[in-house]
Write a protein that binds this DNA or RNA. Structure first.
Lengths: 242, 242
DNA sequence: CGGGGAATTGAATTAAATCAAGAACGGTGG
DNA sequence: CCACCGTTCTTGATTTAATTCAATTCCCCG
């Protein structure tokens, strides 16, 4: 065990040793030397729930990997109506390359920890390492698939189906190892009712009513507002419209 | 003029000479040699309106550039409810790299002409030419931005705002040179009312009523159902909720 | 224990969907 | 060229899902 550890982590910076981004995230594209170079200029932060990470139309000069927690990406209309257009979980890459301005807001939904690097360094590494850009393309394609799935949910599902779909999506992202065979799972909701409403294009009252319905129908249990236990993923899925 | 032409098109395949994809599309990443190689294995098609280009869950073994016309990308729920999740105009690249199955349907909304290449060739060229992958990443990031913009429209705008937003989007895509100063423009709608409804998450009746409203309010004129003249882009924009 | 934001619940309202005719359009063939 | 047909689109009347408005109730935290 010790030996295996030594072999595997030879030359890998301490900062990166147990980092998920090195395995499933973009850093997997880097060899130990590059990792050392990047680790030297990167820094770990923890962010309070509610803190803004990227402001609308603000210039972005750093990129990050999400190490833990949930980041919500939002867009707003001029009169204040808001829509959550994506959620990022570990080990997602956060930031919009090749544009000086971000058209979206990013905000910590829960406590979040990030590993951040200066914009210029990543862009240089991307030019040097096609594999890094390749990983980023793959993540972007996945995000595009997710966004399009949500468009179906937003445009064509009923309130009941939206809420069921949302719970399923969260369950799968919080616990990515979730076996399709298991039928029961539980998790902390990373979003408030207001956030869920902004994600689903509904009002908080409608979200609340639909959750109550799922609860009284015995598909879920809710403790302390945030802790959800799904007692039948199958039944939940059948109400999600998919 | 003749001289300039000759210099610029030296070694460029006839097929690609006047192709927009060479300028604004992914083929701009290729040098004349690569272009010749690709042109040898690529073929131009024209597709009837309504023809299916990529079937849901079908294996995709070719990619294409859109040369003209409009392609709609759709997703459906099991009970038939449909959502259009994107539109592709020239010179967009069509296809989902790195996945054997496509999760979406692609269908010609208008008459479409395509330039298609075998899947394997493009993937090989992508490995050889990071610049090609870079272009693709940029297009994908743009599509992601568009998808997220639409999520706001789907989730948070009223029917009236949705229809106004749709007309603006079409006007800008049909005529990409559209000067923000000009206030009047006209175009053929590439979609039927049913398509528009599927795009906006509405019913055809609601789309029709909103178009009638814009017409009676003097913002647009409609001839023969499909030909739209926007008489005030400014007023249209102010009704789009942005 | 008590204050304050978050969530739930109920009643009334409304925007959009549904149901139901017609009208306009675009091919086709006489 | 015009009459016919099927499709697409428009318009109107009604219904309904979700919003809005309005109290409570429930948690969390000091």
């Amino acid at each position: 065990m010790t030996v295996r550890q030594d072999v595997h982590s030879a030359g890998i910076p301490v900062l990166c040793q147990s980092c998920e981004a090195r395995h499933r995230g973009v850093c997997g594209a880097l060899d130990p030397d590059q990792l050392v170079g990047l680790a030297r200029i990167s820094s770990k932060h923890t962010i309070e729930p509610g803190a803004e990470l990227i402001g609308d139309a603000e210039t972005v000069d750093s990129y990050s990997n999400v190490l833990s927690g949930v980041v919500k990406l939002t867009k707003s209309l001029s009169d204040g109506r808001q829509q959550i257009v994506g959620l990022q979980f570990a080990p997602d890459f956060l930031g919009r390359p090749f544009k000086v301005e971000s058209a979206i807001n990013a905000e910590a939904a829960t406590a979040v920890s990030l590993c951040s690097f200066p914009r210029a360094s990543i862009e240089r590494m991307m030019r040097e390492s096609p594999e890094l850009e390749h990983r980023l393309l793959k993540q972007t394609l996945n995000e595009l698939d997710e966004a399009r799935d949500w468009m179906v949910t937003l445009g064509r599902k009923t309130a009941a189906e939206k809420v069921a779909s949302f719970l399923l999506m969260i369950a799968r992202n919080i616990d990515p190892t979730l076996d399709p065979a298991t039928n029961v799972t539980s998790f902390e909701l990373p979003l408030t009712r207001a956030d869920i409403a902004d994600f689903l294009g509904l009002t908080i009252e409608t979200v609340s009513r639909q959750l109550t319905r799922l609860r009284t129908d015995g598909l879920i249990r809710i403790e302390n507002n945030r802790h959800v236990t799904v007692t039948s993923l199958t039944r939940l899925a059948s109400r999600s419209g998919a």
